[in-house]
Amino acid sequence: MSNDEQGRTLKFHILKYDPQLEGDEPRMVTFEVDEAPGMTIFIALNEIREKHDRSLQFDFVCRAGICGSCGMLINGKPDLACRTLTSRFPRGEITLLPLPAFELIGDLSVNTGEFMRSMSERVEGWIHDQEQESVDLTRIEERMDPDLADEIYELDRCIECGCCISACATKRMRDDFLGAVGFIKVARFALDTRDKRTDEDWYEIIGNDDGVFGCMTLLGCEDNCPKDLPHQHKIAYLRRRMVKVT
């Protein structure tokens, strides 16, 4: 952190609204915070809650970009508060809004859990193997090609923060659209050799305009994923695979 960034006073414009509170109206409130070296939005939010507004609601767990709780709109772009340095904003003005497309709990806190759960149930995001019951547990598991394992692991890095959903105009316009987080999950299990689902089975899940054919390739997911997951590449891959299903 360079010295000239120390001593800056940052201005945070934050949406305040508690839907549970009768008569409460959404409004923007401005808070001033003295910037500290290496400060993240998450640290600044804690300071605001400590010093200015004890009622401010926002989510966090891990502070390290792996739990996916602190997704929010930072100057209009969905990102994780814990991974966004305040030094990234030369003007020192930062607007924070809750992630759109999710149910608002209050202020910056949204309910991504309910959506993610139903998404996971919709794509049945677990290994499907009819012979699983008769697996001989005394035998060593079948080996997996390390490259394939890497590829699966790459997609497993998804933390379900919801940024791709908020960044997707298609999803925002059409509630039933699956969204990038769902496609990443499908791609992950479609790659996995332990999952015995065929392309026909996958087509039943994503083979319509609420699924992969509804994607208009706006690429908000690709450009706003905090984990840099290969959304464009994987959605294209699923599209090619699904169009071949007869």
């Binding site: 209009g76 960044a167 105009a169 706003n224």
Partner: peptide, 29 residues
């Protein structure tokens, strides 16, 4: 035509999204 915003509500969401996100490929669409 299937992909067009088919209601005022959808169109408004799209415009609001463009305004806040300022995302190049969404604007191109």
């Amino acid at each position: 035509l299937r992909k067009f915003p088919i209601s005022w509500r959808q169109h408004k969401i799209l415009r609001d999204q463009m305004k806040t996100m300022k995302h190049g490929d969404t604007n191109l669409w």
